[in-house]
Design a protein around this nucleic acid. Structure first.
Length: 419
DNA sequence: TCTGGGGTCCTAGGACCC
DNA sequence: TCTGGGGTCCTAGGACCC
């Protein structure tokens, strides 16, 4: 059996840990630049005027204020610290763990003999997460990942735990919309609907495998198999990432090549640090910049890439490559709203060949090591390339509703008032 | 004024080779 | 009328996820 454990409204829940007084208020968390709403607690969702997640904040700001909502910018430092506690708690109970996202994990329960009652065990997981990480979560348990996802959704509507077995399979899947199945998006759901398949139960009982393969490709067949209780999505180790990206919407439109170049240097700095952390190198870098698609102005989307003969994780080489791409794709006269880079063709460092002719690489490796060391010790931007710029940056915008780093910064510890 | 960011997997089709 | 066939590799783009 597999358990899927998932933190309820994770971003909102984390923000309320040190602000217990806001628990009974609507809570929303905003994306970068305070642009869009990316998370909301149940109360905020029930207000009804946010039809979808990713609603632009400015459209509903007034209504949120009237509803006395607590609004936060995304505090990734805080989120990741709580995420670590969450996964750590589960790992201690079920070592075969797949960290699926900051707020979700699959736990493989096979071989855990001491579990007698799955419902009780689900409740136990839930209680442990609450005790150790102060986060509310839901637990779905079922024979496969896809079914565990469904069980988790049902759990959220009940008291937080749901177990699917052959005995209650029909009851669980009968009213479950096919669109809500993990891996079935709107495009696939539409195709299934055309075949008269509206529920997970109908999908499970559909017999024409070839047709599913043809319509929904291999991915669709896997989901179908999993619905029937046949495991084909295995637990995965937390491996290294295959690609590492970094991109940002700019605070305001920017026009000069220099400013874009500085932003790209910063994106490369961030991504290459992740790359080095997992001891990998990349053979390719993609760069893109584009104008604001929401504005009624001439649009331009530029992208390009550079490949490396031997893999690299060197900040300086990568920044240089990104700037060369920028030379190719930059067109003056446009107001650019977003830019980003993507390091791809990522492979483990020790498997990649060394370029005989590049002696410099070795020198830079030591340099990068030292820079990483300093930045880990003294904070992310202590030492960095001058290419990132030194002046004030027009393209970043401060987050206006940033909460404190309660758990990771000595200067921002929670304060206790005793009266 | 103001519209997120970071990933994975799969396939079709082009380029190239003999 | 009619213009090889069979492979491999790579890439762009779609679909989906949180």
């Amino acid at each position: 059996m597999i358990a899927l454990v998932d933190v309820n409204s994770c971003y909102a829940s984390v923000e309320s840990v040190f602000r217990p007084e806001i628990v009974k208020r609507p809570i929303v968390v905003l994306s970068n630049n305070d642009g869009a709403i990316i998370a909301a607690n149940r109360l905020a969702k029930s207000l009804g005027f946010m039809s979808t997640m990713c609603e632009p904040y400015f459209k509903v700001a007034k209504q949120l204020e009237q509803a006395n909502a607590a609004v936060f910018s995304s505090n990734y430092v805080l989120i990741h610290d709580f995420s670590r506690r969450f996964h750590h708690t589960l790992f201690n109970i079920t070592p075969k763990l797949e960290t699926y996202s900051v707020d979700e994990a699959f736990c493989d329960l096979t071989g855990l003999d001491h579990i007698h009652n799955l419902w009780d065990f689900g409740k136990f997981l839930k209680d442990e997460v609450w005790t150790n990480a102060c986060l509310p979560c839901g637990v779905g348990i079922a024979p496969t990942k896809v079914l565990a996802k469904i069980a988790n959704r049902i759990a959220k509507k009940r008291d937080g735990v749901f177990v699917i077995t052959e005995d209650n399979m029909k009851e669980a899947l009968e009213n479950f919309p096919v669109r809500d199945i993990w891996g079935v998006g709107s495009a696939s759901a539409q195709k299934l609907n055309l075949l008269g398949i509206k529920t997970a139960w109908q999908f499970r009982n559909y017999e024409n495998k070839d047709k599913i393969q043809k319509m929904l490709t291999k991915v669709g067949v896997q989901i179908w198999q999993e619905l029937r209780g046949n495991r084909c999505l295995e637990m995965r180790d937390v491996e290294e990432k295959d690609m590492i990206g970094n991109s940002r919407s700019y605070g305001s439109d920017i026009y000069t090549k220099l400013e874009i170049a500085e932003s790209l240097a910063e994106f490369v700095t961030n991504a290459s640090m992740t790359l080095r952390k997992q001891d990998s190198v990349c053979f390719n870098i993609n760069v893109f910049i584009h104008t604001n698609a929401f504005k009624d102005v001439p649009q331009y989307y530029g992208s390009g890439h550079r490949t490396f003969l031997s893999g690299t994780s060197d900040q300086i080489s990568l920044i240089r490559a990104a700037h060369r791409v920028l030379d190719d794709i930059y067109r003056p006269g446009f107001g650019y709203k977003k830019g980003g880079i993507l390091l791809s063709d990522v492979r483990p460092k020790n498997e990649s060949q060394v370029d005989l002719f590049s002696q410099r690489q070795d020198d830079n490796e030591k340099l990068n090591e030292v820079v990483d060391l300093i930045n880990r010790r003294w904070g992310k931007h202590t030492v960095r390339s001058a290419a990132c710029g030194t002046g004030t940056k027009e393209w970043t915008r401060r987050a206006d509703f940033y909460s404190r780093n309660y758990t990771t910064d000595w200067n921002e510890l929670p304060e206790l008032k005793i009266s």
